[in-house]
Design a protein around this nucleic acid. Structure first.
Length: 512
RNA sequence: GGUCCGUUCGUCUAGGGGUUAGGACACCAGAUUUUCAUUCUGGUAACAGGGGUUCGAUUCCCCUACGGACUACCA
């Protein structure tokens, strides 16, 4: 199958809403294989259902993947030799392929109305059939070109009666599908129905469009979600009916992404429920105006997100787990993709993000963090911000944590942690701080070393031990009980600020 | 209901006829940091159940249970 030909892979989402994490992963795996093999990666938009079109969804898909570093060689946004890449723009040609199948006897016209279909299903349910199907048994009782006299069929066609084209599913035949991940899957056609291939609105259904386009675009590997496995036998039958079986692509059906807890597949609600971002980038619903948070805006690294996603359902076979995109391209293989679904673990994603956050320099971090610092109303010098980053870097998990966790560098404390006040703000401390403030005021300059010297000498003058005062000192400077190295922190705040903070703490917290 | 797919620590997973069933996240404990976090060390924790096959099964086969997908003129 396709040996020697350069691989061509596609990601083929429908623009019916924001791109789900499972879709990002599907795109990623396709991308990895394309890059690894020197193949071509194509973005095709499957918009054959006009009723489900969502404004902005297509651009969202492109932007989401671009943020992840997933790039295409051909596609709706790039063009290419096999365009157009939007199925609605290929509309006219699908009819010919459907009619070709009719001529070959592999498909037929059906004129049944919605009501007639409903009635058929109701009838069958009433007589005990669990899942009523339009198939080789039932079609004889319906209005189609197999059951109706030829002249009536022609009359209806000429009169412009609405019709669909259905696949003529063989009655009892084993269809074998080879899946790279799952091996051979065998289904009997008696379980399958006469699927609509061509709709009465003149659009193909997924099944037809997908097979025709994959053929026309010379797709060699179809890597898609597990939800497509049940209809793959139909697709194989379509390739066969067209006479394209020898050029059929390889199929690989990816396991699903599951909820972090409980049963079922991952959904937007899981992000909402946990108050965590869900999409790659912010999504605003064009109808409601409601925005769902994305990882980009929440301060995640795309590298971390991609790394995390890659390890959901795939593993390299050894204990490595930090993978840059290039390394993923090297290491990836369909053979090492799991068969079972993987729970989406937000905590692990946060951990990956932390790892990536630590890999960059303080200077780089400062650049990334500046926008939020500025929107918090601070305008630190580059040098100061970098120093803050140097002290804070190992304590951050997300970029987005920065403002909240570093606020005390830029502002005086708005509150003093009551627990620490209760425990550490004891009688001799305020007086000691006041004398520190005085001593510092007289000092010419104040680095971490000088600050510590003043601290030590005033503490011993007061007859105290450093351990008894340290926490209160931190509290006075930052309002909190934890934080970066105390004297470095103070040095960075600067002498005047430290003096003022000490006095203000005494003023607000009293003399114990 | 039917069809198909699946099932190793709480989670992501490695492994595979004979292993102390390995790693990572999370969690817990200790060390270091006179803070918190980091870091380091250690720890708790898994082969869904039942039948086979076999000298031996978590690994192979079957059944059951459970989970999931699909079952539209949606993709």
């Amino acid at each position: 199958m396709n040996q020697g030909t350069p691989p061509r892979l596609r990601f083929a989402p429908s623009p019916t809403g924001p791109l789900h994490p499972g879709g990002v992963r599907t795109a990623l795996f396709n991308y990895l294989l394309a890059r690894q093999t020197g193949g071509t990666f194509i973005l095709r938009i499957e918009d054959t259902d006009q009723t489900r079109f969502v404004e902005g969804a297509e651009q969202f898909i492109i932007d989401s993947l671009a943020w992840c570093g997933i790039t295409f060689d051909e596609g709706v946004h790039l063009g290419g030799p096999y365009g157009p890449y939007r199925q609605s723009e290929r509309k006219l040609m699908y009819r010919q392929y459907a009619m070709d199948l009719v001529e070959k006897g592999a498909a037929y016209y059906a004129f049944d109305t919605e009501q007639e279909l409903d009635e058929m299903r109701d009838r069958m349910k009433a007589s005990g059939t669990a899942s009523p199907q339009y198939n080789s048994i039932t079609r004889v009782n319906m209005k189609n070109s197999l059951s109706l006299p030829a002249d009536e069929v022609n009359r209806r066609l000429e009169a412009g009666d609405p019709y669909v084209i259905r696949f003529r599913m063989p009655r009892n035949e084993e269809v074998r599908v080879q899946d790279v991940i799952r091996g051979w899957v065998v289904v009997n056609t008696s379980q399958l129905d006469d699927k609509v291939l061509f709709k009465s609105d003149g659009m193909p259904t997924y099944h037809l469009a997908n097979v025709v386009d994959d053929r026309l675009m010379h797709i060699t590997h179809v890597i898609r979600g597990e939800e497509w496995l049940p209809s793959t036998p139909l697709h194989v039958l379509l390739y066969r009916a067209f006479g394209w079986e020898d050029g059929m692509p390889l199929f690989a059906h990816l396991p699903l992404l599951l909820k972090p807890d409980g049963d079922g597949k991952l959904s937007k609600r899981d992000g909402d429920r946990l108050g965590l971002p869900f999409y790659a980038i912010n999504w605003t619903n064009p109808d409601t105006g409601e925005t769902t948070a994305g990882y980009r805006e929440a301060g995640y690294f795309p590298e971390a997100y991609v790394n995390f996603l890659a390890l959901l359902g795939w593993n390299p076979g050894d204990n490595r787990e930090m993978f840059g995109m290039d390394e993923l391209v090297q290491a990836f293989s369909l053979e090492r993709v799991n068969k079972h679904g993987a729970r989406y673990d937000f905590q692990k994603l946060a951990w990956f993000n932390q790892q990536y956050l630590r890999k960059i320099s303080a200077a780089e971090l400062a650049v990334l963090v500046r926008p939020q610092a500025e929107s918090a109303g601070w305008s630190p010098s580059p040098g100061f911000l970098e120093e803050v980053c140097r002290l804070m870097q190992e304590r951050l998990t997300l970029l987005g944590d920065f403002t909240q966790m570093s606020a005390f560098f830029f502002e005086f404390p708005h509150r003093y942690d009551p627990e620490v006040v209760e425990k550490r703000w004891k009688a001799p401390v305020p007086a000691c701080f006041l004398s520190m403030a005085e001593a510092l005021e007289g000092a010419e300059s104040m680095g971490a070393k000088e600050l510590e010297e003043v601290f030590q000498s005033k503490v011993s003058e007061a007859g105290l031990k450093p351990g008894q005062v340290m926490q209160a000192f931190r509290l006075a400077l930052s309002g909190e009980g934890g934080g970066p190295a105390l004297f470095e922190m103070g040095a960075l705040m600067g002498r005047d600020s430290v003096v003022a903070r000490l006095r203000k703490a005494v003023e607000l917290l009293g003399h114990g």
